[in-house]
Design a protein around this nucleic acid. Structure first.
Lengths: 257, 257
DNA sequence: AAGTGGTCTAGACCACCGA
DNA sequence: CGGTGGTCTAGACCACTTA
């Protein structure tokens, strides 16, 4: 599977077009306004955390009625790009937070979050799996982080993270100890990469000897592997991450409709 | 946890109330209209699969503008209760389909669906876990089905299903062979119970000897346990189901935002 | 009080569907 | 063709937040 182009939105956008003028290009007015706002957010014109102009201001800027602008904004709320607060304004959401991983693990729900510590940083070739996921060539240079999550001194999760060197060059010279516990805000500050959404894939696996050792479990122990592909605001794949943890700790809940 | 009352909606409903009349009861007009429609669907006034009246007809019946009625209908679409088809109408969704279980299993995605065969039907006391989930007393009578899903003659999943006897009495006298492969449509036809949504809980487990045998795996083999609680249109818990399958076959994908 | 989003109205026209 | 939902307008008033 190639996810590299998932959720990429071109900047179709021309506020001057009136309802009757020319072909609607197969899109409703609110949809192209939404696409326009999306790309303006992605390019940093409206930074994460900042408020957008009020819906009235946007409506008049785009030359549409309030209801139409509300439809456009509503679609961005659905997509998780912005959030609206009654009486305050419309805000660009900051990237996804921490605790996102805890979804799959029992101890994530209650109690303190585990610590996270980067144990190695290396520049390597992407390799088949990460290359395909990130839309790179197999030999493209990536930064590979190995990271351990621990609690009360006991290792819980082993993570292997691949970042395209091109966008994350500023992390290449850091020592492992210089990485903070929360990586996504760090990506944003240091590299201008906002992680906006991710896909997590869960599968069963038995621990390879070396990883088992770092998790203080016997080789071949049942484990859950979560393969994450993270995307920036423009929908480009920016991080490939493999997390391994004890299967006994796994947990998930899903709604079926 | 007690899920028995999840998603229960009272029938707040009075089409005659105008925008200014009395307190809005903390609810927007569209919200109470949605609640009204919800309960009218749950009571069978609008059967599953049937069309609702047109939005114009509903709007004039409730004495609101089109936009308001659209907001109410939109919220029911979000909740998965109805679906709208451009040019055709608004339809009450039939219950959740099959293949819903396959979400967690690798072989569910592609290839034919496995067969399902009920192997035993018994009337028993609910027991602690099912009682709590279904909101019953521990000694309340339930129907317990044991069911095997197989493919090409090989057993894949073992299911233990608990149904409150009160609502499923008409199934109590059936022989195992009289149950069809798809249970939810069967519940609807025979017992008037429409399964509208469900919560699936995933956890790791090692197979007990007896179940391992029926899955043709060694005792203690790593397995995934999916605990499902299914709800009818009124939001009452109607089925508790425990599914066990080989952990090697497990698979899940989730979006993180 | 001023500014924001949330709700609501009473229309209009368009796009899709089926007889 | 008539009926359905989808889009859009140009207002109005309400509820929440902040100063």
């Amino acid at each position: 599977m190639d996810y590299s182009a998932v959720d990429a939105f071109p900047a179709i956008h021309d506020p001057a077009t009136a309802p009757g003028d020319g072909p609607p290009a197969g899109q409703a007015r609110w949809a192209s306004i939404a696409a326009s706002l999306r790309s303006r957010i992605a390019t940093g014109e409206f930074p994460a955390g900042d408020p957008l102009p009020s819906e009235a201001a946007l409506a008049s800027a785009y030359g549409v009625a309030l209801g139409t602008m509300r439809a456009a904004l509503q679609s961005l709320v659905q997509a998780g790009l912005i959030e609206r607060r009654h009486g305050k304004g419309t805000f660009v959401r900051s990237g996804i937070g921490s605790g996102s991983l805890s979804r799959f693990f029992r101890w994530g729900a209650s109690g303190e979050l585990p610590d996270a510590r980067v144990v190695s940083v290396k520049e390597v070739a992407a390799g088949v799996e990460a290359a395909r996921a990130l839309g790179l060539g197999v030999h493209a240079p990536v930064l590979r982080l190995v990271r351990l999550r621990t609690r009360a001194g006991r290792p819980l999760l082993h993570e292997r993270i691949c970042l395209p060197l091109e966008r994350f060059a500023r992390l290449a010279t850091l020592a492992p100890g210089e990485f903070p516990p929360l990586l996504y805000p760090f990506y944003a500050r240091r590299c201008g990469v906002t992680v906006h959404r991710a896909l997590d894939d869960l599968a069963f696996e038995r621990l390879a000897p070396r990883i088992a050792q770092s998790l203080e479990l016997p080789a071949g122990h049942p484990a859950i592997r979560v393969t994450r592909l993270a995307f920036d605001l423009a929908g480009r794949a920016v991080e490939h991450r493999i997390t391994l943890g004890n299967a006994e700790d796994v947990h998930d809940r899903a709604e079926v409709r």
